[in-house]
């Protein structure tokens, strides 16, 4: 059923970044003998998990032609909320996890309200404001001191970000499961299609009776929820809550979506493309690390990949438009 609806264009769209990912892996396999082995691959998946989670929320925001700059701070706040609650004596894993998810959703819902109730001109403004507010709150509640989670009786909380099954990280199993859900959500539910419609043409959607403001609020709340989940994984990975940990998360998530075929103009992007984008970023970071390259080189390479990916994307679109025009004549 799903295969039948995939046409050639979708395939090419999905394949571009995939080819890049495979090429990158081949090149790195020859460049360093530490790259091509099971352990390292699992390491990459572990490293990609947080970005995958945040990027899935970012994707649906981007599809509506919006942006969520608060994701990094939001993820960190969720971690800090758990840390503070733990310091206050809460050790129940379920309660801590719920608090992280709730905190993430509240921030996301706040973004949605700012956008739809105050009618701020662009989510860039509301989420930029929210990013700073949330970061400030995280610093405030933790008194700007990192909180350690080890040997505090909350080990089960850390499993999500640290445990593996035969080396395969649980966090990435969660990612795969959620991505499958996102695929169904975006393609098979009315709300999912409405997200594409609102992003593709907000006015036409409104005149067709779609409540685009409600769609927006749901989208930003979902993005927040994914940040909360990412916060739980983060705590498991580094065993601490540090308000300054999420600096690169915003841009990494946006980059994953854009490399994966999403557009700032809205209306397009797929969840599996986003995963490939997130993996590509993780592979580049991992590979350059193994090669002994410092942060500086990593940033330069990732920056170039983003520009290149979008350039290829718009060039392909222009060529398609041209072909259509020629065909119409």
């Amino acid at each position: 059923m799903r295969k039948k609806t995939m046409n050639i264009k979708d395939l090419i769209m999905g394949l571009g970044p995939l080819v890049a990912l495979i090429l990158m892996c081949v090149v790195l396999s020859f460049a360093t003998n530490k790259f091509f082995n099971y352990g390292n691959f699992m390491n990459i998946l572990k490293q990609a998990s947080i970005n995958c989670l945040i990027a899935s929320g970012m994707l649906i925001v981007l599809i509506t032609a919006g942006i969520d700059l608060s994701v990094g701070s939001n993820c960190v706040l969720a971690a800090c909320v758990m840390g503070v609650l733990m310091q206050m004596g809460v050790t129940n894993t379920a309660v801590l996890m719920a608090s992280a998810l709730l905190s993430g959703m509240l921030v996301g819902y706040g973004n949605g309200l700012l956008l739809t109730k105050l009618n701020l001109p662009h989510p860039f403004v509301s989420t930029l404001g929210m990013k700073n507010i949330v970061l400030g709150v995280a610093l405030l509640i933790t008194k700007a001191t990192p909180i350690g989670f080890q040997n505090k009786g909350v080990d089960t909380l850390l499993y999500l970000g640290s445990k593996t099954i035969k080396g395969f990280p649980i966090s990435f199993i969660v990612v795969l499961f959620l991505y499958a859900l996102f695929d169904i959500f975006l393609n098979l539910t009315a709300l999912g299609r409405n997200i594409y419609c609102v992003g593709g043409n907000a006015e036409a959607s409104r005149l067709s009776g779609i409540d685009s403001k409600k769609v927006m609020r749901i989208v930003y709340t979902l993005s927040g929820l994914m940040c909360g989940l990412a916060g739980i994984v983060l705590v498991g990975r580094v065993s601490s809550a540090n308000a300054m940990a999420g600096i690169t998360y915003d841009t990494d998530a946006i980059a994953a979506c854009i490399i994966g075929g999403a557009s700032f103009m809205g209306g397009k992007g797929t969840i599996w493309g986003t995963m490939i984008g997130a993996l590509l970023i993780a592979v580049i970071r991992n590979g350059l690390n193994l090669l002994g390259a410092q942060n500086d080189i990593q940033y330069i390479v990732i920056g170039s990949v983003i520009v290149l990916a979008v350039f290829i994307d718009i060039t392909r679109e222009q060529m398609e438009a041209k072909a259509r025009k020629l065909a119409a004549k």
């Binding site: 299609r193 594409y196 419609c197 593709g200 043409n201 006015e203 036409a204 959607s205 209306g267 397009k268």
Partner: peptide, 12 residues
């Protein structure tokens, strides 16, 4: 501008 979502399939 107001009737269609051009980037979406005819069926949607």
């Amino acid at each position: 501008g107001q009737g269609l979502v051009l980037s979406q399939y005819v069926k949607y």
